[in-house]
């Protein structure tokens, strides 16, 4: 008897899986998959929150399904299989890996599902479009800000992202481009702290020991590591404001630190990337008649024109965080958080 019950349950479950997509299709919103590299980072969460705040999602025209890639290329590739079998209308994605995320995107494109890649590039140019910020330029802006505060003279240390990642490679390239122009800025140390604040803190403590009184500037390839370095300076009772410190991303703590005059940050505009990617995807689904709905196309009218929504690459401008715009950015971030909660 029990066995029969179990069998019935199994059959019902199996069929309900087949039935589910049909039900959602009959409701007729456009179904967009968002394949995100991993939902543990603050940046990824801001990105998803921005997607959900897009006018087309709020009006019910679009239904977003989020896939957490869990930092594993294999997981992301498997998710693209699901995206294909469930016949999503289009996908927006942040790749887990430069190389490892290629097969999934390829399969989707072959299955005629448009894929908009954003934030980080992949080693294949067959995707429908790419929208992101140029990390080389980000690295240049960062190094420029630090060298400027040093008045072109001093010793710096560089906290790098994970070795081998495109973020680390491109940002380092940008930093080196700028340092070539400043012969009197010397690099004392350059090492990875894996985007992590705790690792940045320990590394900086050790560098303060091995180069006592010699470090003038700190270049963090992201904010978290720069914030860790600031903690190390504070623990050593050194005057933080006398150092030239910079980071990239514009995370909440960094905005607070900019406001306190402790560092510079270059904001990676997750909102524009996410909402821009969604508009580009909708342009593919609906066709030439589609007009973009996100506010960013007005804001960046000059720097990043819409151009019919069919360009291959869209570069979202970086926003240097300054004493002038920091209050406004903190306010926007607070509202985004409220929307999400």
């Amino acid at each position: 008897m029990k066995r029969i019950q179990r069998l019935v349950a199994c059959i019902t479950l199996t069929f309900s899986v087949f039935l589910l997509p049909d039900i959602s299709q009959s409701a007729q919103p456009i179904r967009i998959a968002a394949a995100i590299y991993g939902l543990k980072a603050e940046f990824a969460n801001l990105y998803v929150a921005s997607l959900k705040a897009h006018p087309a999602v709020k009006s019910g025209q679009v239904q977003i399904t989020v896939f957490d890639g869990k930092y594993d290329p294999l997981v992301q590739n498997d998710q693209f299989d699901t995206i294909i079998t469930q016949k999503f209308d289009a996908a927006v994605m942040i790749p887990v890996d430069f190389q490892g995320s290629v097969p999934g995107v390829k399969k989707a494109i072959e299955a005629r599902i448009p894929v908009i890649v954003s934030n980080a590039t992949i080693n294949w140019d067959g995707q429908t479009a790419y929208i992101g910020s140029d990390d080389v330029i980000g690295g240049e802006l960062l190094a420029e800000a630090v060298c400027h505060k040093l008045a072109g003279k001093g010793n710096v240390v560089i906290l790098q992202g994970p070795i081998g990642g495109s973020g680390n490679i491109d940002r380092t390239k940008g930093i080196e481009n700028v340092l070539k122009k400043y012969p009197d800025v010397k690099v004392l140390e350059m090492k990875t702290a894996n985007w992590s604040r705790a690792e940045g803190l320990s590394l900086m403590e050790n560098w303060l020991t091995s180069h006592p009184g010699q470090i003038n500037g700190i270049i963090g390839e992201n904010d978290e590591m720069a914030l860790g370095a600031i903690q190390a300076l504070k623990a050593a009772k050194l005057p933080v404001k006398d150092f030239a410190i910079g980071g990239i991303d514009g995370v909440a703590d960094a905005l607070t630190a900019v406001k306190a005059g402790e560092m510079f940050s270059i904001l990676q505009d997750s909102t524009s990337m996410a909402q821009g990617a969604l508009d580009l995807a909708l342009r593919q689904v609906i066709g030439p008649s589609y007009q973009p709905q996100a506010p960013l196309w007005k804001t960046y009218e000059k720097e990043m024109p819409w151009k019919g929504g069919t360009e291959k690459v869209y570069w979202v401008p970086w926003t240097p965080v300054t004493a002038e715009n920091v209050d406004k950015l903190i306010e926007t971030r607070r509202k985004e958080k409220e929307n999400k909660g």
Binding site: L39, A41, E42, A235, V251, T256, G341
Partner: peptide, 21 residues
């Protein structure tokens, strides 16, 4: 992650931060 919404919690009170410093 559920409790924090994946967001870090900044600006902790000085009394608490004293444990680290």
């Amino acid at each position: 992650y559920m409790y924090s919404n994946g967001q870090p919690i900044p600006s902790l009170s000085d009394e608490f931060l004293n444990i680290g410093k």
